[in-house]
């Protein structure tokens, strides 16, 4: 059976890159009242084939836990999960990253406009070229037992916790923060070799 699965990995220690992104967006660009926090994850999406969702996660887990090009337990937290419409997908996971509680707030700004609230937009940034992903597929091929992986997406997810009036407003703001169109716009990706896609939007509990 075919499944879609994802691996999210983040540093246990302070992420200096995310800190720099935070400082650039809030101090050098004018997003100080729109942005509450940033988290950065390494992201792998898998098109997998295996006998069951549980087995796919178990097989992938064995590899990603031991292969330092995915995770190193001394410095990373990770979450491996099945996505899509697989029944009971929510409970088929591995790893120690509390993704659904990972909403740090760095600022001290109150919501500026009435009715606004916090949205966490997860933007996947990756290169137009897909050869890193192809490399990982062949890497997995030689290490996986049972489960097969036929395609992958590899990149970084930026979780931008923004202050917005609704979903659309949140996504628009997140994209403005992300895409470098000019010197005064965006920092997280250069569209001439990178793309972004929204892979999740959620509302953190206040």
């Amino acid at each position: 059976m075919r499944f879609k699965a994802e691996l999210w990995v983040r540093l246990k220690v302070a992420d200096l890159v995310a800190q720099t992104a935070w400082m650039t967006l809030t101090e050098k660009l004018d997003f100080s009242s729109d942005l509450h926090g940033i988290v950065r994850y390494s992201y792998w999406g898998f098109d997998a084939e295996g006998e069951s969702a549980e087995k796919v996660i178990e097989d992938l887990d064995r590899v990603v836990r031991l292969d330092s090009s995915f995770t190193n337990q001394n410095k990373h937290l990770y979450l491996l999960r099945v996505t899509g419409d697989t029944p009971g997908a929510d409970s088929i996971t591995a790893g120690d990253l509390p993704l659904d509680r990972d909403y740090p707030v760095h600022d001290t700004v109150e919501n500026v406009e009435a009715g606004n609230k916090r949205f966490a937009c997860d933007l996947l940034v990756r290169e137009h070229r897909n050869d890193r992903a192809e490399g990982f597929v062949s890497r997995l091929e030689s290490r996986l037992k049972g489960t097969k992986v036929s395609g992958m997406k590899v990149g970084e997810v930026w979780r931008l916790i923004v202050n917005a009036s609704g979903d659309e407003d949140a996504v628009r703001k997140a994209e403005n923060m992300a895409v470098t169109r000019s010197r005064r716009e965006g920092v997280l990706l250069n569209p001439h070799y990178q793309t972004s896609e929204l892979v999740g939007i959620s509302v953190p509990e206040e």
Partner: peptide, 22 residues
């Protein structure tokens, strides 16, 4: 500059000195 964080050159590009250089 800025340890190439996020992407080489992008953080420095937003510094105020670049306004003057522009």
């Amino acid at each position: 500059s800025y340890q190439d964080r996020i992407r080489a050159g992008v953080v420095a590009a937003k510094d105020t000195v670049m306004d003057a250089l522009s």
